[in-house]
Design a protein around this nucleic acid. Structure first.
Length: 331
DNA sequence: TTTAATGGCGCG
DNA sequence: AAAGCGCGCCATTAAA
């Protein structure tokens, strides 16, 4: 039976259409059309109309008190959802260009939420993987599949990546099974194997759910709270949704705290150093700057140190920097 | 014409 | 019944 929407209508979302595309030619065409229509209406048609005639730039508005986890949100236009995942979408991103004699620099925290999970859980294997600068998805695959990291196949790494992300979101065996296209029981056994290899993470998840239930809130590393009114709901669905939010919020929220500290540190540094580089955007785990070519080496050297040094967690904070004539090339 | 709900989908 | 967190915005439809 096909998936239903909230109002009981048959769903035509991407997952359903991909499935139908196995048997019919039309769904594929519809997906293509939808993807292109999305790019045209939301970005290609819209953004040029939002250029401020006074500055020649697109100016977003950042809200500091919208997202419950402490993230900023961006609107009118939202510049935190500019496409990057498809070649067609990247052409939109490439339209964000640096002024003459400047470059766009992007500096993003690598695997920030998984690093925070390692910090919060204190799990020995996870801490060690990050301490040694390992490819964490590969390391996880090695543990879960019982092979040496060097023997991990791309398929195994893909599985491990889905598991790692799933953990951050409080995903169930059902969700993992659907995502990987495997049986629920098989998904559960992967989760069991994960927790057997990373017992600190399992304890952390239990501890967080218990804390949420007892206190009615969870906290980030820096103490910002997310209240969870549904954590004791009699309706299981609402209660489980609150539990997933409780699992996710300390990780997403701590990441938000860290990048806010990084923004403050970056602004203070640029202001005090006489540099002409400017912070122009924040995209959750990424800072975007406009940098005079003459300052590129300085920014490349100093910015990762600055961003990585805003807090001393039990794992190093790695920052990846890219530069280019436009925002796409900066990645 | 504006507002609200809905389904869908762009990003981290 | 739902089973994956957090956002904002599009087109469409219906109501105000």
């Amino acid at each position: 039976m096909v998936k239903k929407t909230a109002t009981g209508q048959p769903s035509t979302d991407e997952e359903v259409l991909e499935k139908l595309a196995e048997d019919y030619p039309l769904p594929k065409l519809l997906l293509e059309h939808r993807g292109l229509a999305k790019l045209k209406s939301t970005y290609a048609d819209k953004l040029p109309r939002m250029v401020d005639p006074k500055t020649g730039r697109v100016h977003t508005s950042f809200s500091q008190a919208t997202a419950v986890t402490g993230r900023l949100s961006s609107s009118e236009p939202n510049l935190q959802n500019i496409p990057i995942r498809t070649p067609e979408g990247r052409r939109i991103r490439a339209a964000f260009i640096a002024p003459r004699d400047h470059l766009i620099v992007s500096a993003d925290y690598s695997q920030i939420e998984l690093r925070i999970m390692a910090h919060l859980s204190g799990d020995a294997r996870l801490l060690e993987a990050f301490a040694h600068g390992e490819d964490v998805h590969r390391a996880t695959a090695g543990e879960v599949f019982g092979v040496a990291p060097s023997e991990v196949t791309s398929e195994q790494r893909r599985y491990a990546k889905v598991i790692n992300f799933g953990l951050i979101y409080g995903m169930s065996a059902h969700g993992l099974a659907k995502n990987l296209g495997i049986e629920r029981a098989a998904a559960q056994s992967w989760i069991d194997r994960y927790f057997a290899r990373y017992p600190g993470v399992a304890e952390y998840m239990d501890r967080t759910r218990a804390e949420a239930r007892e206190q009615g809130f969870v906290e980030t590393v820096f103490g910002r709270r997310l209240y969870l009114p549904d954590i004791r709901a009699s309706q299981a669905g609402r209660r489980q949704a609150a539990e997933r939010a409780a699992i996710n919020a300390p990780m997403q929220g701590t990441a938000a705290d860290l990048i806010k500290k990084a923004m403050i540190a970056t602004d203070a540094w640029l202001a005090s150093s006489g540099l002409e580089s400017k912070l122009v955007l924040q995209v959750h785990d990424e800072l975007v700057l406009e940098v005079p070519r003459a300052e590129l080496d300085t920014i490349r050297e100093q910015l990762p140190k600055l961003m990585g040094g805003v807090a001393a967690l039990k794992v190093p904070l790695l920052v990846e920097v890219g530069a280019g004539d436009n925002w796409d090339e900066a990645h």
